[in-house]
């Protein structure tokens, strides 16, 4: 059972090693002639002004928070979806109730303009 995951683990290790190996090859084969102009941040040829790590729109946070709610919902739906045939009508109706509550929340955030980008 758990030994089925051994190839997965080895594959992840190989994936990481492969990426690392390619970058290492780039370092070994490519030239290295850095100068201050070359190493400065790209800003369409201008001298970079102000810090690049600037303030950003709060809506990105909002999307992240909404994502967590909906992703959790999906996590609840996964096991339910697999056993739906066994739990029948009762299982289906309880999930309709659960989804219904979430849809109310979804409509609320929609009306509040949380999904509005301009």
């Amino acid at each position: 059972m758990l030994e089925n995951y051994l190839p997965v683990l080895i594959f992840i290790a190989i994936g990481i090693a492969f990426g690392g190996f390619m970058i290492l090859m780039g370092f070994l084969l490519g030239p290295r002639k850095p100068d201050s102009e070359k190493l400065s941040a790209y800003e369409c040829g201008f001298e970079a002004f102000e810090d690049a790590r600037m303030k950003f729109d709060v809506r990105y946070y909002l999307v992240a928070i909404l994502f967590i709610i909906f992703d959790l919902e999906i996590a609840f739906l996964f096991p339910w979806a697999i056993v739906l045939r066994d739990i029948g009508m009762f299982g289906f109706m309880s999930m309709v109730l659960f989804l219904g509550i979430l849809v109310i929340g979804f409509i609320y955030e929609w009306k509040k303009g949380a999904l509005q980008w301009e």
């Binding site: 090859m25 780039g26 084969l29 490519g30 030239p31 290295r32 201050s36 190493l39 400065s40 941040a41």
Partner: peptide, 12 residues
């Protein structure tokens, strides 16, 4: 070609 290109590590 990409393998023989310089890898630039920006100063910042």
């Amino acid at each position: 070609k990409l393998m023989f290109k310089e890898i630039i590590l920006p100063a910042g």
